[in-house]
């Protein structure tokens, strides 16, 4: 099934043009320096990298919020250029996103029910009753109940809010879900619950994930393929096992070494190194 590619990026470049003050010189920041990758249906690609390496810029381009400065983006084989074409409802429905901070990603003045039905209202032809039923179903699927439908976001915990955010992303039945560090703001026990929920949903809806993270243990758990970014460039791209077993680039090696490890061998080796 190698032909079933859902997302393909060819040489994506993103530049930010800023000026230093009103009469200052224009400054060009290259946030992405030619990124290429492809993603198969039903798989998970993890994007790893430090802060400021262009992960979020990539997420903004893939969710069709910002256009790329150069390069091509193909979703299900169709080239997409939001600089030229107006975004259609069908296209809008294909890619959705879940954000890192569950406290900032829900509108504090919007009830959970409205959070879930607003995308349906704007992108589908369902009537009010259908939207309501569909949103209720989705609430149950992400592990919340119909009784939460009329509550405001401030009444929920971080993990529950992230479930709401996932439900909002899924009501449009997207093909591709961008997960922008979806668990890094949650504590460990809740992280595991959310990751399991994501794995279950991936199976149920045949979803494709692009998982942005800096937590390598999470990446190892969820990813099929791994892409390591460094200053806007891809320095490593391959299957999970290949990247974890045999990292090629210096940065990747440094990154793996920086991960705290708790096994006895590793601690002994470190202590030996410290005492010698």
């Amino acid at each position: 099934m190698s032909g079933d590619t859902i997302l393909e990026a060819r040489n994506l470049v993103r530049e930010y043009h800023t000026k230093e003050g009103m009469f200052g010189k224009p400054v060009v920041t290259r946030a992405l320096k030619g990124i290429s990758f492809s993603l198969e249906r039903g798989k998970t690609l993890a994007v790893v990298g430090e802060s400021g390496c262009g992960k979020s810029t990539l997420a903004r381009i893939l969710t069709l919020i910002d256009p790329a400065t150069e390069g091509e983006l193909l979703i299900e084989g169709e080239p997409i250029d939001i600089r030229k074409d107006r975004l259609t409802r069908e296209l809008r429905r294909k890619v959705q996103i879940v954000f890192q901070n569950p406290y900032g990603s829900l509108n504090p003045r919007q009830k959970v029910g409205d959070v879930l039905t607003e995308p349906l209202k704007l992108n589908t032809d369902m009537n009010e009753q259908q939207r309501r039923d569909f949103a209720m179903d989705m609430l149950v699927k992400v592990g919340l109940g119909p009784e939460h439908y009329n509550r405001y976001p401030h009444m929920f915990s971080g993990g529950q809010r992230q479930r709401i955010a996932i439900a909002r992303a899924l009501v449009l039945k997207p093909k591709l879900l961008i997960l922008d560090e979806p668990v890094s703001a949650l504590d460990l026990s809740v992280q595991a619950q959310i990751l399991n929920l994501l794995a279950d949903l991936q199976e149920e809806f045949n979803l494709t994930y692009l998982f942005i993270s800096h937590d390598l243990s999470v990446v190892r758990y969820i990813a099929d393929k791994v892409m390591v970014m460094y200053f806007g460039e891809v320095v490593e791209y391959g299957t999970r096992d290949a990247v974890f077993e045999n990292p090629q680039h210096d940065y990747t090696k440094t990154l793996f070494n920086a991960t705290p490890r708790a096994d006895v061998e590793h601690i002994k080796a470190r202590l030996a190194a410290a005492h010698s």
């Binding site: 809008r92 890619v95 959705q96 607003e118 704007l122």
Partner: peptide, 26 residues
């Protein structure tokens, strides 16, 4: 600059609705 505004954009909210219904009440 808050994330819920970007989330609204991704779910297809166009600018006029974004201005008056999403941002203004806050």
């Amino acid at each position: 600059s808050r994330e819920y505004v970007m989330a609204a954009r991704v779910s297809g909210v166009r600018t006029p609705r974004l201005m008056f219904k999403t941002v203004l009440p806050n």
